[in-house]
Nucleic acid binder design. Structure first.
Length: 591
DNA sequence: GCCGTTTTCGGCCCGACTGTTTTCAGTCG
C-alpha cells in the first residue's frame, strides 16, 4: 500500500523539517528557504484539516506558508508517494540525522557531527545509540539529560492541572504588598489545551522581596534557583514553576513577549518592522531608516535607538496601532490584521454562560458507561451557586443489551419523575447522551427519545472507521428532531487517544441546515471540539454549546476550560447557545 | 521559498544561553 496517501499532518511536517535541515547543511546561503520550509511544516502541523484532505480538494495553498513550490511538491507526494526533489536534497545525509535532531539541544549541525563521529546512520536506532555513546562518555554528558527529556516527552500538563497550580501561586504572590501585578505566561496564559511550562511574571520595583516571598510558597518541595530577577521552585509532584520579576514601568513588553505564541510574536515583529520599530521583551525601539522609501517612524514617536517602555500590554499594542489582542487569540493567524481594523471578535466570557447542558447524575439508569456521583438535587444546588438559570441532565442511555424496549421506557419514565420531582430553583432539562452505534444507529428507541426535552449523541466505540464512514455514521445519528447536538465530537482524550476522522464541512453543513449544534466539552482531558476545529465551525456559522460533561457537582466549574476553548476559537457570546436565557434556549430546542 | 492596503522584487523577528566562544556558532523559545 502507498503509505503517502495516509500520511498524517505530523508526518508531512516532519518530512518538510528534514528537508529544511538538509538545506541548512548544504552549501550556499539559503537561510530564507530554510525558514520557508520550517514555516510550511508548522502550518501543516497546526492545520485543523488533514493536509491530504486539503490536497484532495485542491486547497493546499490555503495554508499560510505553503506556496506554489511546496504545494507542487506535496502534490507529487500524494500522487506518487515520493518527491524527487526532496529525495535529491535528503540523499547526502543519513536518515539517523533527522531523528537525532528530535533531542533538545541537537540541531542539524550537531546531529551531522554526531552521526559522522559516532557512526550512527539508521533512523530507528539513532536515539538509543546516541544514549549509549553519551553514557560511555563519547559525547558531552549533558546530552544524557536531554535524551532522557526527549524520551519522556509529551509530558505536557493538562490545562486544568497547570491552571490550578498557577492559581494557587499567583494567589500567593498577590498577598505580598510589593507585588503590583502577577500573571501566568506562555501557553497557560493563552489557555492552550495542554501546557508545557508554568511560568509566572510579576510587576514590582522590589524584586528582592518578591523573590524571597516566592521562595516561601508553602506548597513547594524545594527552591531550585533564586536569582536577582528570576527564581524557580519544584513542587511535590516534581513540576517546576518559574518566576520573572520586572519593574511595573516595563511590564507590558515582558508580559507580551513571554505570552507568545512564537508565531504571533514573529508576525507582530514583522508588522512592527514595516512601521520602523523593533520589538523585544524590553520594549519598542525605533529603528534607523534603511532607505529613503522607508522613513521612520511612521506612527507614534521616540528617538532612534531608544527603547520605549510600556507598563501594560494595552499600551504596547496601541502604540503599534493595534487593539489589545486577548492572549487566547495570539496564535499567529489573522489576529494582527483584525486588531488593526478594530475587528477582533468580542470574545465570550465565563460570566456570559447561563446554563450547562451536559452532565451526569447518580440516577441508576443501568447504562453501559459511568454513572455520575451526584444527585440531581446536588447538581442543581451547585448550578444555582454558579448563577445558572438551567441545566440539562444527560445521563448515558440504558445499556442496549439486557434491556427490552419496555424496560428502557420504564427506566426513562422513572428518571423523568426524579428530575421533575419537585419545583426547583432552576430549570432542569430532561435529556440523555446517546451512544452512536457503529452503523450510525442511536442506542435508544425513538419512542424513548420522545419522552425527552432533547438529546445529544456521542461516539464511545469504533473509533477507527474511515472518514467517510465515520461522517455518515454521525449524520445518521444526528438526524432526529429531538437530537440537538453532537457531544465531544472527536472523542479524543488528550495524551491518550487521537480524535476520530470526520469530514467537517459535511458536519458543519448539516448542522447549519438542520439547527444542530456542536459541543465544546470542557472536561479537561477532552476539550473537544478542539480549538482549531471550533474556529472553523464558527466561520461556517455553526452554533456551539459549551458544557462540562460533569460526573460530579464539583466538576461544574470546568466550564471555564470550555469557555477558554471557545475563546481560542474566536467565539462571541452569540455563537454559544448556552449564553442564551432559558426562554431563548427553549426556543432553540424546538427549531 | 513565501509574500504584498506602501512591493510581483526585495525583503524576511529577536534576544538569551551555552560552550572553549577572546567575537562567534549553534540552538532555543
Amino acid at each position: 500500500m502507498d503509505t503517502s496517501r495516509h500520511m498524517t499532518n505530523l508526518q508531512v511536517a516532519k518530512l518538510l523539517r528534514a528537508v529544511a535541515a538538509a538545506i541548512e547543511l548544504s552549501s550556499g546561503d539559503n537561510r530564507f528557504r530554510i525558514v520557508a520550509y520550517q514555516r510550511a511544516a508548522d502550518a501543516i502541523e497546526h492545520s485543523s484539516s488533514e493536509v491530504k484532505d486539503l490536497w484532495d480538494d485542491g486547497n493546499l495553498k490555503e495554508l499560510a506558508g505553503v506556496g506554489e513550490a511546496i504545494a507542487g511538491h506535496l502534490d507529487e507526494l500524494f500522487k506518487t508517494g515520493k518527491v524527487k526533489h526532496f529525495e535529491a536534497i535528503l540523499k547526502p545525509f543519513p536518515p539517523a540525522l533527522f531523528e537525532l535532531m528530535e533531542v533538545p539541544g541537537i540541531g542539524p549541525k550537531t546531529a551531522l557531527k554526531f552521526s559522522k563521529e559516532l557512526g550512527i546512520t539508521r533512523a530507528h536506532s539513532a536515539i538509543p545509540e546516541l544514549l549509549k555513546a553519551a553514557k560511555k562518555g563519547r559525547i558531552d554528558e549533558r546530552f544524557i539529560k536531554a535524551i532522557e527529556e526527549y524520551q519522556g516527552r509529551s509530558r505536557r500538563l493538562l490545562l486544568d492541572v497547570a491552571q490550578t497550580i498557577a492559581d494557587s501561586i499567583v494567589g500567593w504572590m498577590r498577598k505580598n504588598p510589593h507585588v503590583r501585578e502577577a500573571n501566568t505566561l506562555g501557553s497557560l496564559r493563552r489557555q492552550a489545551s495542554t501546557v508545557g511550562d508554568i511560568d509566572i511574571a510579576v510587576a514590582s520595583d522590589h524584586a528582592k522581596e518578591v523573590i524571597e516571598h516566592f521562595t516561601k510558597y508553602p506548597h513547594k518541595s524545594r527552591v531550585l534557583e533564586a536569582g536577582v530577577h528570576t527564581a524557580s521552585l519544584i513542587l511535590p509532584n516534581e513540576y517546576q514553576v518559574d518566576l520573572m520579576v520586572q519593574p511595573p514601568a516595563a511590564y507590558g513588553a515582558l508580559l507580551q513577549h513571554f505570552t507568545g505564541s512564537k508565531h504571533h510574536n514573529i508576525k507582530l515583529r514583522e508588522y512592527a518592522l514595516k512601521k520602523g520599530y523593533s520589538l523585544s521583551e524590553y520594549g519598542i525601539t525605533p529603528r534607523p531608516s534603511t532607505s529613503l522609501s522607508n522613513p521612520s517612524p511612521i506612527i507614534g514617536e521616540g528617538r532612534k535607538g531608544e527603547v520605549l517602555s510600556f507598563p501594560t500590554e494595552e499600551k504596547f499594542y496601541n502604540f503599534l496601532g493595534l487593539d489589545w489582542i486577548p492572549p487566547e487569540l495570539r496564535e499567529g493567524e489573522n489576529e494582527i490584521e483584525l486588531a488593526k481594523l478594530h475587528q477582533l471578535p468580542k470574545l465570550v466570557e465565563l460570566s456570559d454562560i447561563r446554563g450547562d447542558l451536559q452532565m451526569h447524575s447518580d440516577f441508576n439508569i443501568e447504562p453501559s458507561h459511568d454513572l455520575g456521583l451526584s444527585s440531581v438535587d446536588e447538581l442543581c444546588d451547585k448550578a444555582r451557586e454558579l448563577g445558572y438559570e438551567y441545566i440539562g441532565i444527560t445521563d448515558h442511555n440504558p445499556a442496549v443489551s439486557g434491556h427490552t424496549q419496555a424496560q428502557i421506557l420504564d427506566l426513562i419514565k422513572k428518571r423523568t419523575e426524579v428530575i421533575q420531582f419537585q419545583k426547583r430553583a432552576i430549570h432542569v432539562f430532561n435529556s440523555l447522551e446517546i451512544d452512536i452505534q457503529p452503523i450510525g444507529k442511536r442506542a435508544l428507541p425513538d419512542a424513548a427519545l420522545e419522552l425527552l426535552d432533547y438529546a445529544c449523541i456521542a461516539i464511545h466505540s469504533s473509533f477507527r472507521l474511515s472518514r467517510k464512514a465515520m461522517t455518515d455514521r454521525v449524520l445518521s445519528a444526528l438526524d432526529h428532531p429531538k437530537v440537538k447536538f453532537f457531544a465531544h465530537p472527536t472523542a479524543r482524550l488528550l495524551g491518550q487517544r487521537e480524535g476520530v476522522e470526520l469530514d467537517w464541512d459535511r458536519i458543519f453543513d448539516f448542522c447549519v441546515r438542520n439547527h444542530k449544534w456542536l459541543e465544546i466539552d470542557g472536561w479537561p482531558n477532552r476539550l473537544d471540539l478542539p480549538d482549531v476545529v471550533a474556529k472553523d465551525a464558527i466561520k461556517y456559522g455553526v452554533k456551539l454549546v459549551v458544557d462540562t460533561d460533569s460526573h460530579a457537582a464539583g466538576q461544574l466549574v470546568y466550564m471555564r476550560y470550555g469557555v477558554s476553548v471557545a475563546r481560542r476559537a474566536g467565539a462571541a457570546k452569540y455563537d454559544i447557545i448556552n449564553t442564551g436565557s432559558l426562554k431563548e434556549v427553549i426556543s432553540c430546542l424546538t427549531k
